[in-house]
Design a protein around this nucleic acid. Structure first.
Length: 253
DNA sequence: AACTGTATCAACCGCGAATTA
DNA sequence: ATAATTCGCGGTTGATACAGT
């Protein structure tokens, strides 16, 4: 059995919303709320729209606490930190930025921020390896989250103890080995440590974890969000050279 | 001025998860 | 327990604006 459509496609208007439709939807929701049923809402509100379309319009544009306009440096930092940690979980990222919607952040990332950070040009061959990117992630790094939030849902964020930042001079554990960061690892490498626990994938999409025991690497490549590949050995050596602890190697076997 | 390529962003689509009957 | 329904998410598309030639 196929999935039933959420609405009668033939009798539903699509495309941009008119000011009149906006006004109708806004007035209805402000008066009656959503009633917990988006599918029934357009009929009640006198709109020839799909419920999903109404929901999207309200959440992304009409609701009163929406923040429009340019993103601040601080918002950039939060987005980058979270993207580095959890990837393209836009709704979670949006929950950390009051007034911003997941759609907004997704668009902003895809059209501006990604290019700004990766230094992407139209020619992929001009992409720089990670250690040559001056600001692969913004600096300085601030903790994106408080530890007490997001403790229970399946989409939970790492706690602040799981999410670095690593601070030069502090000590950290990696593979049960104590690391000292007195040599002040660069911003890029600090941020790479986010990937160590959560994001590192090889080209066969096996997730790797620098901090645990197993992974498979083929062709010595690491795949980063955005499809950028880097040489594993290169990154490993950079990590090692930036840690002043007694670590001899970062084992992935 | 006309045309073309690129960037932006609102909106749509399909899917999995959650909820309800 | 299970099928149907609804919600919410992330990826993608398409219309429009803008920049460059």
């Amino acid at each position: 059995m196929g999935r039933s459509p959420c609405c009668d496609k033939a009798n539903v208007k699509k495309g941009p919303w008119s000011p009149e439709e906006d006004a109708k939807l806004k007035e209805f929701i402000e008066k009656h709320g959503t009633g917990g049923n988006w599918i029934a809402l357009p009929h009640k509100a006198g709109l020839k729209r799909c419920g999903k379309s109404c929901r999207l319009r309200w959440l992304n544009y009409l609701r009163p606490d929406i923040k429009h306009g340019d993103f601040s440096e601080e918002e950039d930092r939060i987005i980058c930190s979270l993207f580095a940690t959890i990837g393209s979980r836009w709704s979670i990222i949006a929950s950390q930025l009051p007034g911003r919607t997941d759609n907004d952040i997704k668009n902003y990332w895809n059209t501006k921020l990604k290019k700004k950070l990766l230094g992407i040009t139209n020619a992929p061959s001009q992409r720089k390896p990670v250690h040559q990117q001056k600001h692969f992630f913004p600096s300085p790094i601030s903790p994106p989250l408080q530890a007490t939030n997001h403790a229970t849902t399946p989409t939970q964020l790492p706690t602040s103890s799981q999410v670095l930042p690593m601070i030069p001079g502090d000590n950290y554990m990696l593979n049960n080995t104590s690391l000292s960061t007195t040599s002040a690892p660069s911003c890029s490498l600090l941020q790479l440590s986010y990937y160590e626990q959560y994001q590192l994938k090889d080209t066969t999409e096996n997730t790797m974890s620098f901090g645990s025991s197993s992974s498979a690497i083929e062709e010595n490549k690491l795949m980063f969000p955005g499809g950028v590949e880097y040489n594993y050995e290169e990154i490993k050596q950079l990590l090692i050279s930036n840690y002043s602890g007694s670590i001899n190697d970062i084992s992935l076997s």
